[in-house]
Design a protein around this nucleic acid. Structure first.
Lengths: 110, 110
DNA sequence: CACGATACCTTGACAGGCGAGGTATGTTGT
DNA sequence: ACAACATACCTCGCCTGTCAAGGTATCGTG
């Protein structure tokens, strides 16, 4: 986990939306995927993840439903909403600008 | 201010260190520089800035001294310490990794 | 039947950003 | 002379997102 929580802060929702843009998924899986995709550089703590789901659902960015697996641990699936896709678009644009701005502020001297 | 505070969070100290790496400066000036360098995309609120100075000084990343201007508003100058430069190096490396990881998580689908 | 993996959830503490408020000096306009 | 604004500093307390710690339930394996 070489990327600190404070730096990830603010990207949590975006990362979740990006995962859901590829298809419905559930908490445990999203957590695993993020760890894997980041090469272990970062990952969500469970509390962080579920807090984010509540927030996103309350804001209408995602919706949820219980999966119909046979017997076994139940899963709550999440789906991105149209509003969520709009938000993701905006977040991606913001991320693009963030990179440019922080490169100017952090990487370059003075 | 198109870059949200939550995204900037965690970069505050790094940005200040990067500014001070180019030479001693004081709060008001650093604030102006950051706004300018970011093209108005982001900026520090005063409270944020001065909180960060306290934190950085307490952690030995910067030191401070009062400027000797003639009459006029007094300025407290800050200088980066060797430990601060080490931290800045580490932060820059982390930023580099952050860009790669978040590109993988946010920009690419699934 | 114990143990680990899967899978969900809540509570309370903590830390950083910042709105709101304050102080003091110098300059500029009327 | 006096108001208004820019410079320049500071603190208090709220808000929000993260997360350690704790909990629940099911399934497969030894």
């Amino acid at each position: 986990m070489s990327i600190s929580a404070d730096i990830l802060r603010g990207h949590t929702d975006t990362i979740i939306l990006a995962q859901l843009a590829a298809g419905d998924s559930y908490g445990y899986e999203i957590g695993k995927n993020v760890s894997q995709l980041s090469g272990g550089a970062c990952g969500f703590k469970e509390a962080t993840l579920y807090t984010a789901f509540r927030r996103l659902e309350q804001n209408g960015m995602i919706s949820s439903y219980w999966g119909q697996e046979g017997p076994g641990a139940r899963r709550r699936y999440y789906a991105i909403t149209p509003a969520g896709r709009d938000q993701l678009e905006a977040d991606r644009r913001e991320w693009s600008e963030t990179k440019a701005v922080l490169d100017a502020l952090i990487v370059k001297e003075g």
